[in-house]
Nucleic acid binder design. Structure first.
Lengths: 168, 168
DNA sequence: ATAAACTTTCAATAATATTTGAAAGTTTAA
DNA sequence: TTAAACTTTCAAATATTATTGAAAGTTTAT
């Protein structure tokens, strides 16, 4: 396969994967483009490469910066802003995990904890089932949370190394 | 908090979480409703409880069955179909992980492997960066894949027990 | 102060995803 | 068979989300 075709497919696949996981397709594609680019790119170049508008490129880049996946760069003597993506995959994974934990898991955990205080009639099956289900989900969410927290602190080698030792 | 309000909030939160992770909001809500219901429910009851149309209820239930999260039940002497959700949270987590792995991770892994065979000029920075990035992502995806496979086989107690020992 | 170079905003538009509801299909009982 | 009870389908309508592009805003150099 030629580089040009491979790039194309990679960007497409990354975009699809992103959209399947609730991440804007364009955002994933811009990220993919920057990931495989050795140099930082300008807004113009990104617009051109992905055929998107200036407004879209601007907002998407801002979001990516918000996720901690991309940073602005300035070249001496130039007015233009350049955008560069973190290339360390483990760092990317941690960053995404951290953001989604903060934005989505934490609020749910908070609510689940509140829901465990629900009052009702112990004889009522609806009440009992509700309590059990919520308690159960709460426990799993707590476990996921702890695992993520460990992962966020961990070095890649330590994390996978330990996991593999565990899983033989 | 009263049971009625708590149910409401739970269904809402589950729907929101689902939509943030690329799962249709209604599907997540129907799942939530069944999760906290001690009895199997009919299509009518689900339509009523969530104010959704018959067509929507029918399709959503079919999808949930496709995900292995809900099953049909029949009561003797009745024509109506009843729907019941698996209540074991660990089983749900495994089921979801398995489906998403099959539908989304596996195809990406396949593509990534193909992309590692890209040909090009070793002196070309674009080529080198592409190869490195893809190889790196491929490795991480492989690790995630192996971990999921282990998780799919694992018993809950063993899985989290081991994880906690590991993470002290 | 002015203008060129560049970035940001956001109302309008387009694209995508979800939902409806009525008709068609199926199954069961008599 | 017939009809009632129930389920499924899918084209059309609606709702949601993403994108455009031109105007407004900002910064820098002269």
């Amino acid at each position: 396969m030629e580089l040009q075709e491979a790039k194309q497919k990679f960007i497409e696949a990354w975009g699809k994967l992103g959209s399947e996981w609730g991440i804007n397709r364009t955002m994933a594609q811009v990220h993919a483009l920057l990931l495989i680019s050795p140099e930082a790119l300008t807004t113009e170049e990104i617009m051109e490469a992905l055929s998107i508008s200036r407004g879209n490129a601007n907002m998407t880049l801002r979001d990516l910066i918000g996720w901690g996946l991309v940073e602005k760069q300035h070249k001496p003597g130039e007015r233009k802003e350049y955008f560069y993506a973190e290339k360390d995959t483990w760092a990317i994974a941690r960053q995404v995990a951290q953001e989604r934990k903060k934005r989505e898991l934490d609020p749910v955990l908070k609510l689940l904890n509140e829901l465990t205080t629900v009052t009702g009639d112990e004889k009522d099956p609806a009440y009992k089932t509700f309590k059990t289900s919520v308690a159960d989900i709460n426990k799993l969410a707590g476990n996921v949370n702890k695992t993520l927290e460990t992962m966020l602190k961990a070095e890649e080698s330590w994390f996978w190394g330990s996991l593999f030792k565990l899983f033989k």
